[in-house]
Amino acid sequence: MNVGEVCNREVIIIDRDGSIRDAAGLMRKYHVGNVVVVEEKNGDRFPVGILTDRDIVLELIALDVDINAVTVGDAMSFELITAREEDNVMETIKRMRHKGVRRIPVVNDRGVLEGILAVDDLIDSLSEQLTDLARLVMGGQQRETEKRL
């Protein structure tokens, strides 16, 4: 299975010049824990960073930083890792674990933002697969029992 099959295509984005308050408002409005910071070129959106609710709390509020004095670009994660749509899901999970990230922007071959892959998406997908496998085993056992009767 590839990342493009699992990722969420509805990505909440913001410009690096956006305010922290605007970013937090978007997260609240869309019930998400992050915004992807993008740079627009010729109508295409290229991810340049990510800002999470955790970043806001731990790096700004907990340190008593005046959120009106910084922009999204000042507070976003700069070491952005991305996944391509055709990347293998299991390999991507390993990369995410190695980097300690719960969300990763998904890009196409040109680096244009196409989606976002979050741990929650992966859990949903893997849970569905495990349920299908369990039903397969249970169905086989039930058929064997019925044949014996």
Rank of each mutant, 00 (worst) to 15 (best):
V3R: 05
G4F: 12
E5I: 06
E5G: 08
V6H: 02
C7Y: 09
N8S: 14
R9W: 05
V11Y: 11
V11D: 07
D15K: 09
D17C: 08
G18V: 04
R21C: 04
R21M: 08
A23K: 08
A23M: 09
G25M: 10
G25T: 06
M27N: 07
R28M: 07
R28S: 09
K29C: 01
K29P: 00
Y30I: 00
H31G: 03
G33A: 12
V35M: 11
V35E: 10
V38T: 11
E39Q: 13
E39I: 00
E40L: 05
E40V: 12
K41F: 06
G43M: 05
G43D: 04
D44A: 11
D44W: 02
F46I: 13
V48A: 01
V48G: 00
V48W: 01
I50Q: 00
D53A: 08
R54I: 02
R54W: 03
L58E: 05
L58P: 00
E59N: 14
A62E: 10
A62M: 08
L63Y: 00
D64Y: 09
V65Q: 00
D66P: 03
I67K: 01
N68Q: 10
A69T: 11
A69V: 05
V70M: 03
V70A: 01
D74I: 06
D74S: 09
M76Y: 08
M76G: 03
F78M: 07
E79I: 05
E79V: 04
T82N: 08
T82D: 04
A83L: 11
R84Q: 09
E86Y: 11
N88D: 15
N88L: 07
N88C: 10
V89N: 02
M90K: 06
M90W: 07
I93S: 03
R95F: 02
H98F: 11
H98S: 12
H98Q: 14
V101R: 07
R103Y: 04
P105N: 01
V106I: 15
D109V: 11
V112K: 13
E114S: 13
I116A: 03
I116Y: 12
A118H: 03
V119T: 15
V119L: 15
V119Y: 05
D121R: 05
D121W: 12
L122G: 01
L122A: 04
D124A: 04
D124Q: 07
E128K: 13
E128C: 02
L130S: 06
D132S: 09
D132M: 10
D132K: 09
A134T: 13
A134C: 04
L136Q: 12
V137F: 15
V137Y: 15
V137Q: 15
M138P: 00
G140K: 09
Q141K: 10
Q141L: 15
Q142H: 08
R143K: 15
E144P: 00
T145K: 15
E146W: 10
E146D: 13
